[in-house]
């Protein structure tokens, strides 16, 4: 009865959905230990939130290195070629003008611009490539909704395990996280 007058979306009340746990740690040592345990426990959809890059955490989490450098290298090579081809085409082919008695196509004089374009292409690809690979900007995320997790950008460390993880069990995972020495386990909602 109630359905036919209002659009469907508005009718559904916003029910917060349980999304996962965030276990809070106060020290680098604590979170490093916890990360290793979570890695060994076989979780796949989990993460660690830290206010700064923690040395050794990538190994502790078992993360693979990123392929970003290869992308950047490729773009740099394209920038170098672009710089050279552009100058060759413009000054040696399309608009030939004698400048200070130099040949139309003067490689030594083209190096600076080719170099700058190499750097420009590489830097732009490093910058944007990093954000794209990280899936940012993304202004909504369950971990951003908790007031407590605001400490993740200041002074505390969080091991976040998503409910969507195949090994996730609402009771057991909470127990597991507490056993790692978490000072608090926060429930996150989506």
């Amino acid at each position: 009865m109630a359905d036919h007058s209002a659009p469907a979306a508005a009718a559904v009340p916003e029910v917060p959905v349980f999304w996962g746990y965030a276990a809070e740690f106060d020290s680098v040592t604590g979170v490093l230990h916890a990360a290793k345990e979570c890695r060994d426990a076989g979780f796949t959809r989990w993460d660690v939130l830290t206010p700064f890059p923690v040395h050794g955490l990538n190994d502790a989490m078992g993360l693979r290195n990123t392929r970003l450098p290869w992308f950047v290298f490729g773009m740099g090579a394209i920038g170098f070629l672009t710089g050279n081809l552009m100058q060759w085409w413009m000054n040696a082919v399309d608009y030939r003008l004698i400048v200070s008695g130099k040949p139309f196509w003067s490689l030594p004089a083209n190096i600076p611009v080719a170099f700058e374009l190499t750097i420009l292409f590489s830097a732009l690809s490093a910058f944007f490539g990093m954000w794209v690979l990280n899936g940012l900007p993304r202004h909504y995320h369950p971990t951003l909704t908790s007031r407590r997790l605001k400490h993740a950008t200041t002074d505390r460390f969080y091991v976040v395990v998503e409910a969507a993880d195949p090994r996730f069990d609402r009771a057991k995972t909470r127990e597991f996280l507490q056993s790692l020495g978490a000072s608090h386990v926060e429930e996150l909602e989506d």
Partner: peptide, 25 residues
């Protein structure tokens, strides 16, 4: 801040990009 949440998976690429930019700069 682009929705930065301190994820270590992000820090990994962030640090790599930082290193690359330093090496380019």
């Amino acid at each position: 801040s682009l929705g930065w949440r301190g994820s270590n998976r992000h820090w990994l690429r962030f640090e790599k990009a930082y290193l690359l930019l330093a090496a380019l700069a």
